[in-house]
Design a protein around this nucleic acid. Structure first.
Lengths: 212, 212
DNA sequence: GTATGTGAAACGATTCACAGCT
DNA sequence: AGCTGTGAATCGTTTCACATAC
């Protein structure tokens, strides 16, 4: 069986595999092997087999993996059998862009609530959702059964809102503010530091003074 | 000396250290030690010392690190002594949000060009930059001396544009399209898969069927 | 014959613990 | 006395290579 612990590096690749398999399914490929998945996902076949083996034995030796059944298994493992309920906190430009980002709904992330601190925005309706006040955060989280929060607020406000989110029972936060959030055990944070990513690229542009 | 190769994991943490040091400088702390940096950055002191030691010997034993001089060294290593010239390809909601994202300019990333395929957008001016046609990509890259490209175009278009970027001499790409880009050796790609990040969070929400 | 699943080997990253410097 | 810089030990990840199953 499979319910052991899955290495973090493997977990990060699972969404990529899922995306590739959905693509394969759309191309009417009934079965794929580890070489094909690796090709699509940008890794190697051994990696794919190891990763999938952490979840169970889903392949057929001599054949490969049944695309649809592997999609089902991966979706189950990722907790995506039904769409996850997401709240966006901070409806500035980034928050607004994310709310209307089609890639979320496609990949089973449903934005069920949008919150902001600006009284001018509160009450207005955007894409079927009414912007509510961050002051009502706890009530909104409960009412909408929010599972994942996306934080797109200014840096200084991020920690306080994170605290409120945790108190309201949210256990998964994606943080776009360039601030390291302190959260208790059991709460998962993904840090999206866009400027930081660009700075990593910048490092690679620098001529490494390597030569002798 | 320092010009050896820096591990990728270390490179990813350098922007975080830089941000923390800038913060420390703003708080008028002349010197910090590895424990304080670790505290701010969300790691441990040994990690900080190892990471910094890959770049050289910047600390003073018994004292710590001089904040301003370490900022200078890190900025140099990251190639941020002057702002990097960035182009945004794809002026949809995400591209537009990124163009006006204040965190970029603050961290030495200057958006010098915006390109799109939509004739209705081309020629309009946004935040001091005129939107140009993707057809003129090579010319724009040359004229504006673009060093880093941010791709916020629909998935199917991403690879083709990446090819053009590489042909035009761009060697660093941040890709928001959920597609693995194929680029030649020497070109660096950072994949920003926002939906994928949320799916990783979703995995952790799932009750791991661990118990016996 | 073919492709998976997996121990074992190789590699890389993190943590430890202390010598060396101020 | 205090904190850095770094070898050595530990831990985790990736790759290899093959027994196993179809």
């Amino acid at each position: 069986m499979a319910p052991a612990k899955v290495p973090p590096t493997t977990v990060q690749r699972l969404p990529v595999y899922l995306r590739c398999l959905v693509q394969a399914s759309a191309m009417h490929m009934p079965v794929v092997n580890s070489v094909q998945i690796a090709e699509m996902a940008g890794t190697n076949a051994a990696q794919v087999r190891k990763d999938l083996s952490y979840l169970g034995e889903f392949g057929t030796r001599g054949v490969g993996y049944d695309v649809d059944s592997l999609i089902t298994h991966l979706s189950k493992q990722l907790g995506l059998t039904e769409s996850r309920r997401v709240a966006i906190i901070g409806f500035g430009r980034l928050g607004s862009a994310l709310q209307s980002y089609p890639g979320f709904e496609e990949r089973h992330m449903r934005v069920v609530a949008v919150l902001d601190a600006d009284p001018a925005k509160i009450g207005t309706s955007v894409g079927g959702v009414t912007i509510e006040s961050v002051e009502d955060l706890a009530a909104v989280v409960t009412r909408e059964r929010v599972e994942i929060a996306i934080l797109t607020v200014p840096g200084p406000a991020a920690q306080e809102i994170a605290d409120h989110l945790v108190a309201a029972g949210v256990r998964a936060i994606m943080n776009f503010a360039p601030v390291r959030l302190r959260v208790p055990e059991g709460v998962e944070v993904r840090q999206a530091d866009l400027a930081g990513e660009l700075q990593v690229l910048s490092f690679h542009l620098n001529p490494r003074t390597a030569a002798v």
